[in-house]
Design a protein around this nucleic acid. Structure first.
Lengths: 248, 248
DNA sequence: TGCACATGTTGTGCTTCGACAAAGTCGGCG
DNA sequence: CGCCGACTTTGTCGAAGCACAACATGTGCA
């Protein structure tokens, strides 16, 4: 069975609830796998809870394990030679991450930190080839995930290269809302994990100060509502217009 | 045998020479494959020449074929909703491209244009699963290529987010020199494919004007030499210092 | 040879946005 | 309760680099 390392009762319950659900709806990586197969794979997994802000793995280190994110959000960072760090992407619950073996890498290309409290399963990297050989659907889904991330990275690059800061920040908010969002009463979307202005600055290649100003302005205009470390998009439609204004 | 569609005598010779070489040194995707296997794969390929500036495939279209670049350089573009286009990456000879099937995509995520005259082999996408199933090394190398591109994209994002335009332009030059470079007499490196200032601007999220100014300044300082549409880095070491200045 | 067009250069504003300073607010913890 | 630290707000200043205009130069083609 699953071995719960340092997972409190609440965490374990959460995990089981999710797994239950997954057996019904199918967590992406397990689609096209029978329950027995999923069972077998889960038997080999270690489960672990990561408190907010903790590092799951760091760039450049040997890729000893690969992970499946059950709950929470992972932030993937990259540190420049100059020591500044920027947020490359966010990974939502249900996705694989740290899958260096899938791309023939032996070290992690980025650093993964828990953006919120996180629960993740993990397996030793040497099992990767077994898994993909034995369960073709597993490998296929992993490739799809990678493809999707490639697409996101392309889009980020296009963003950074062509848009103004204001549009980038709006786009970053929309993306986080789409990815880690919870509907609120009244048509708004609340971002489910903690975000500081500094985080957003790191995402958009901007500064804390500028982001703060923008959010204040938007809050006054009724586009967003923000508490400390938490942001909700109250008017997604108008914010989207800020992110990509219509040509004329 | 290979079918040469619209390849002139010179092109065909080039192809054969390269293939010959590849049988010796091993083109990346064919490593770990026997000569007979390579032969079999080549038998199914179409070969085609693309004049400079022509589009090999366009973003969003059905991914009907995947390609192996034999000669020349491919520029991968992405068009923003606003119609601006930016250069996402360059692909050097010897690599696979348009490998949407590898990531479970049915349409191309980007547009590929020939940065210089290009010769490429291609296969129908439906053969992808056959190839990877029959020749594991082929799939593995493809994954490595994708992994490498992911890394490059991460680096581009970090660049765009944290560096000044001057550093980005310098970094772009260095990357092109490293990737599509030919040594010149005197320790310099000439970029082997045509590049306009506009191209560089598209790569760095800058403008034609700014790039022109920077190149002029560098030319005066003896870091680069440029003819129309061709650039050589004459002092790679100093240009590298511009790209990433030492911390103190 | 000469024209047309693509490409590159350079000068002058002007906007955007980052740097820095200083102070305000919230939350946790002893 | 009160302190401390993390997070946020707001103001001023200045520079990076974009927009635009006008011109120069090279390249292909008839």
């Amino acid at each position: 069975m699953l071995c719960f390392d340092k997972v409190g009762a609440g965490g374990a319950l959460k995990v089981l609830k999710r797994l239950d659900e997954s057996l019904l709806t199918g967590l992406a990586p397990f689609r096209q796998m029978s329950r027995a197969e999923i069972r077998a794979v889960l038997d080999l997994a270690a489960s672990r809870r990561y408190p907010e802000g903790s590092t799951v793995f760091a760039a450049g280190f040997p890729a000893e394990r690969f992970y499946l994110l059950l709950d929470g959000t992972i932030r993937v960072l990259r540190t420049t030679p100059e020591g500044e760090q920027i947020v490359v992407l966010h990974i939502p619950a249900g996705q694989l991450f740290g899958i260096a073996p899938a791309i023939g890498a032996t070290t992690y290309p980025g650093t993964a930190v828990a953006a919120s409290e996180v629960i993740a399963l993990s397996w030793p990297s040497r099992l990767w080839s077994d898994f993909t050989a034995r369960y073709p659907g597993f490998g296929l889904q992993a490739m799809r995930t990678i493809g999707q991330r490639l697409g996101e990275l392309h889009a980020r690059i296009a963003d950074l290269a062509t848009r103004q800061v204001e549009q980038r920040v709006a786009a970053a908010l929309m993306q986080m809302a789409a990815q880690g969002g919870r509907r609120t009463t009244g048509g708004g979307i609340e971002i489910a994990f903690p975000v500081t202005r500094q985080n957003i600055a790191d995402m958009t290649g901007s500064t804390l100060f500028t982001v703060s100003r923008l959010l204040s302005a938007w809050e006054q205009a009724g586009l967003v509502a923000s508490r400390r470390r938490h942001i909700a998009v109250t008017d997604p439609h108008r914010l989207m217009l800020v992110a990509s204004p219509p040509p004329a």
